[in-house]
């Protein structure tokens, strides 16, 4: 499985290198390829982060869908926050709530936490196994199940397919 990690890291680094250079001459490709392979070999001796990514067609499709869902939530979140900021009464009702996630892989949880941070009124403060502590600018739920349903499930159904 380490081969997969190595390959994903190499390809990512190489793509970034090519975009940064902006041209496709042989020496650029050669240098970038060599450096990407060496760096991946150095840093990927023990890494298991990328092994949890599934590369089935369904997972790829859901990754693309996820980007769109995420963009929609990002715009929604910003309009929501902007409305709160400009409204003269400052309608906030902040609090720290706890939610549970069904994801097991590290990278899946990381992406879930990141997505929660960028979506309407929520900010991941602490993560401990499957318990996420979230600062919510407008607390509505009351118990863990209800909060989980409101905050996590939009993303979880996509991430579950991609990372498990």
């Amino acid at each position: 499985m380490r081969i997969k990690s190595f390959l994903i890291l190499t390809i990512t680094l190489f793509t970034i290198w090519v975009i940064l250079n902006g041209k496709l001459t042989p020496e650029v490709l050669l240098t970038g390829g060599l450096v990407a392979i060496v760096v991946s070999l150095l840093f990927c001796r023990t890494c298991e982060v990328f092994t949890e990514i599934r590369l089935t067609p369904k997972a790829v499709l859901y990754s693309v869908l996820y980007v769109f869902v995420f963009m929609r939530e990002l715009v929604k979140s910003n309009l929501d926050v902007a409305g709160r900021v400009v409204s003269p009464k400052l309608p906030i009702n902040p609090g720290f709530v706890e939610v549970k996630t069904k994801l097991h892989s590290k990278i899946g949880r990381m992406i879930l936490a990141n997505s929660i941070t960028l979506t309407p009124g929520t900010l991941t403060v602490e993560i401990n196994d499957d318990r996420l502590f979230i600062h919510w600018i407008d607390v509505q739920g009351g118990n863990i199940e209800k909060d989980t349903e409101m905050i996590v499930q939009t993303f979880e159904k996509y991430l579950e397919v991609i990372y498990g």
Binding site: L74, V75, V81, V85, L90, I92, P94, T117, L118, G121
Partner: peptide, 26 residues
């Protein structure tokens, strides 16, 4: 600009982090 206004209007650190991060990211 909305992010900066939020930074000034919000009452505590956590709400400021929320507003600042979200608005400035988009």
């Amino acid at each position: 600009l909305l992010g900066s206004i939020g930074l000034i209007r919000m009452p505590d650190v956590f709400t400021r982090i929320q507003v600042g991060t979200k608005a400035s990211t988009l």
